[in-house]
Design a binder for these strands. Structure first.
Lengths: 203, 203
DNA sequence: GTCTATAGGTAGATAGAC
DNA sequence: GTCTATCTACCTATAGAC
């Protein structure tokens, strides 16, 4: 064969990353297979050597994107987790969905997808819950924080005015700081999110 | 003329209601003008007598849907507001997006829409904030609650298992009850959302 | 105001050459 | 594995009859 299996794996991964970025920015349903393939320098005919259908790509993107989000929230100090939350609730994250978390972008489309895609989503979301629990104390608080940051970023993106967006983000940030246990030495409320901060992941 | 202006207004309103329901259930971008018009018993050619473009319809749907949400949250007793929150975080609401709030369904599509559509959205969302403030005390708590319930319903819909969905909803409900001032006599935590409860609005 | 018909474009998916 | 070409279906929007 002219192409190695390693090459196929690399192409598939590039498709997941580039496709995920496009889906987060422009929506998955409204983006054609042609555009997705063009983003990795290929044509639409080659798509079906990697995925059985467009829906199968969405499923793989969900798995890939949320897998990365779990890595970001797990395995880090309390202070770094606070920093991650601060970045999540930043204007930079709101303005650059293609670099950020998939949850505020793709959840409604996943909700309309098939049963198996929703099962993959659910499994990943429960893993995210586990990864965050050590930092929050209990499941109830964790679900509250996750719902809150996802909802806030999504609503901020649908707004138009920068100050309104910032007001929402700062308000939610404040409430979450009140919710978190003050265990670490860095548990004080920081609100200087005006500095240049990278989005939630993909550093 | 063969049709009265009243008839046109009625047709337009039917289009907003039926179109809003379809958009919340199936997504706006992925639904064709043909389907939208068929839902009110007309054909696609007649659409452009009511809206300049499909994007103009989204803008009108946003205004119509959020206007109704504001009515639901404003002008009611503290106890009725708690009931509304309970309905919002119910499985019934999660399972019937077409009857519920537009925020967890359409926000990502609004975020990708034009500036003017986002301005309409922003104005309505700020009105919702005002309507809820008397029940919550301050803006920060209100933003927190709104972000939380919207995020929770959206994430629950993207899950597959009913118990997982319910666990998320109940967790968020619990945290919100801790957040609300215990002013009214009905400020105790109720968790019996298993009863048949109508979704957030459209009773 | 609503219809049918249609323009002009793009969608997801397949076939066969290389 | 990737290409080009193509099928069938659907999309938004317009034109003209009623």
């Amino acid at each position: 064969m002219r192409y190695t299996p390693e090459h196929k794996d690399k192409t598939r991964q590039r498709l997941l990353d580039a496709g995920g970025a496009i889906a987060k920015k422009d929506g998955f349903g409204t983006t054609g297979v042609d555009s997705l393939m063009a983003s990795v320098g290929l044509t639409s005919g080659a798509f079906y050597a990697h995925f059985r259908s467009k829906g199968a790509l969405l499923e793989a993107i969900v798995d890939n994107e949320l897998g990365r989000s779990i890595e970001v929230f797990g395995q880090q100090s309390h202070e770094r987790m606070l920093q991650t939350l601060d970045n999540y609730l930043s204007l930079a994250h709101v303005e650059h969905p293609e670099l950020g978390c998939a949850l505020p972008c793709l959840s409604p489309e996943i909700a309309r997808a098939g049963e198996h895609t929703r099962q993959v989503f659910e499994q990943r979301l429960l893993q995210l819950l586990e990864a965050m629990r050590p930092h929050t104390g209990d499941d109830s608080k964790t679900w509250s924080i996750v719902s809150q940051v996802v909802g806030a970023v999504m609503l901020a993106r649908a707004m138009d005015n920068k100050d309104c967006r910032q007001a929402l983000l700062q308000a939610v940030k404040q409430q979450i700081m009140l919710l978190l246990p003050a265990t670490g030495p860095a548990a004080s409320v920081r609100s200087d999110s005006s500095r240049a901060s990278p989005p939630a992941h993909k550093e």
